[in-house]
Design a protein around this nucleic acid. Structure first.
Lengths: 351, 351
DNA sequence: GTGAAAGCGCTAACAT
DNA sequence: ATGTTAGCGCTTTCAC
């Protein structure tokens, strides 16, 4: 491994002390270094292709220029959109973003947060759905309080279950509004494809939808709710299973709500593969309004979430609302984002 | 900012020296620390919720546990898939991934690489298309050689235009095969929607397609090639423009090749909005085989690229084939990935 | 097996 | 305005 070019080398070549070299390069507030010296330093740095060592700077400054984002799977367009928002805001502030994927394993999430804590990331954004596992939760809490104690900050996206700044997504409210809209369009008999039960995001969407349906005087039979993976294939498999379990049952359903657009698309494929026409035979609705899915036909009725915005906001909350004093750990701020129902061709009026 | 818990605190609480504490925690190969002392240290660390400072470790070890990925836009499913591959391999090796988005601006790319160099990332993966700008290219070269000089490594994805390990994507070959397939299906008169001209990925796909068309005895008129943004909306706008420019011209085209799936989807929407039926009136083909687009109808004919695999491989090349000696900078390895033509319903046989 | 001490590259007092 | 020097938190010789 070649010897790195250090500030000492630059200073030497420029014929100044390391202090002067540092001042010339890091250019503190007042230009406290003579123009000709500064120029010599800059030249020397250029000659040597010098690059300051961020780790060394972090040591002495006591803070890094890195933030972190934890998601389930970056290939999921939901996570990718959030990441784009976080990265845009980070770039605007000259920060780099470390992204960690958990594969939806809370255990892995904790390990990643632990690594991110070691990096002393200025902020850690928890972008994946919270789960209900109390044991892992406790270890996570420990890491998070450690981050706070070290002067970092934390923000969470989705559920407001952690004592940190949160961009809360009103999943229940959005799903409820969706249900209301669908009932308004004339739908009465629903089936729901939901995610893993421990996963709060899908649970909230399920219960919200249920509430909306019931408020409208309709009902959601337990056997018409199917739990599956939070993915396209999960949607496909669950829909297929539901259809195969009782081929006649679908005749009793006039709309399927999949708790995410990605799942909805899978469900549509399963429906089609079994000869059902959408929306003629059965309507389908999703949640999220994933941009990349805008062109599936029939266009998907869904609940729009400003995902990029949510990512940006989460970072802003973390960065701008850092706990004031060590002892007076500032009260976490919770900002709620409500989705907007977007009715499209997949759920035409049934009047 | 609260005082961080340092190794000194842990050692003190455990009643040992920092050296012993370090050995107990970092646990070198041979367990050279007595069991009871190690236990005391571990306990103390637990009590204090201690987290080693990665920057300090990096300083003394001379290497970080971070790798970096540079892409145009993480929300683009192409980049997201590559990122998923990089992150999976990184996780397997206990490394974190810093992701930087350039917004397709070569200038921004250079700045990000510069920042990543400061972080002393072990490897930097350039995941975006190379461009033809010689000036920026030169500054990029400087940063890259700096990374190498500092003991880091670099890998590039796409074009083999940089003196670094490369997962070369045979864009030209894939596009050529696609053209051959389309001609085989009976198509003769093509229109092409391509990306920015300085962008090598789209240029290669265009010229490859052109070569394939010509090899088959057909031709591609210059006016039937339209340059646009490498995005869904770019595809839409370009297609719309082409249709509006000369509403009759489309009658002379029996297949549109968009140089990416994402653009193809936009093109399909524009075609439909103007009343053209796909594939009845005109066929459409793309490139990449983006999984999330699997469910658009008609299913898109395309060239499949193993994007995740490509990401993984790029990181493996960078990590496992580091330059041996400073002076003997190892010859960069170039691995070529060839796409596979996948014919689907958007280009039925015209026989 | 354990501890003392020397740095890693840099910035920020503190002198001058 | 510039140089000297003391660390930042950690690992790793080097003695014992």
């Amino acid at each position: 491994m070649a010897d790195q070019v250090t500030l000492r080398d630059v200073a030497q070549l420029a014929g100044v002390s390391v202090a002067t070299a540092s001042r010339a390069l890091s250019g503190a507030v007042g230009r406290t270094v003579r123009a000709d010296l500064r120029a010599r330093v800059l030249d020397a740095a250029g000659m040597l292709n010098y690059s300051p060592n961020a780790a060394a700077q972090a040591m002495v400054r006591g803070s890094t220029s890195t933030v972190a984002l934890v998601v389930h799977d970056i290939a999921d367009p939901y996570a990718a959109a959030v990441a784009a928002g976080v990265m845009a805001t980070a770039a605007r502030r000259g920060l780099m973003v470390t992204v960690a994927a958990t594969g939806s394993d809370p255990e892995v999430e904790v390990r990643h947060v632990e690594m991110l804590r070691r990096q002393r990331a200025r902020a850690v954004i928890l972008g994946g759905s919270r789960t209900a596992d109390p044991f892992v939760q406790q270890r996570l809490d420990l890491e998070l309080s450690g981050i706070l104690a070290d002067g970092g900050s934390v923000a969470s996206i989705g559920q407001d279950t952690l004592p940190v700044h949160t961009v809360r997504i009103d999943n229940a409210g959005g799903a409820r509004s969706l249900a209301t809209s669908l009932v308004g369009l004339g739908y009465r008999r629903f089936a729901v494809l939901t995610g893993p039960e421990s996963w709060l995001t899908s649970e909230d969407r399920l219960t919200g939808f249920q509430a909306g349906v019931e408020a409208a005087g309709a009902a959601l039979a337990p056997e018409s709710v199917m739990s599956t993976q939070f993915s396209r294939d999960g949607g496909y498999v669950a829909m297929a299973e539901m259809l195969d379990r009782d081929p006649g049952a679908i005749a009793d359903v006039d709309a399927v709500f999949a708790v995410s657009d990605v799942m909805a698309v899978g469900a549509m494929a399963a429906l089609r593969d079994r000869g059902h026409h959408i929306p003629g035979d059965v309507a389908v609705a999703g949640f999220d309004d994933i941009g990349m899915l805008r062109d599936v036909r029939p266009a998907l009725t869904t609940v729009r979430l400003p995902l990029e915005r949510i990512g940006s906001r989460a970072l802003e909350l973390a960065l701008d609302l850092r706990p004031a004093e060590a002892e007076d750990r500032a009260t976490p701020v919770v900002e709620t984002v409500t989705g907007e129902v977007v009715v499209r061709a997949s759920t035409p009026g049934r009047n």
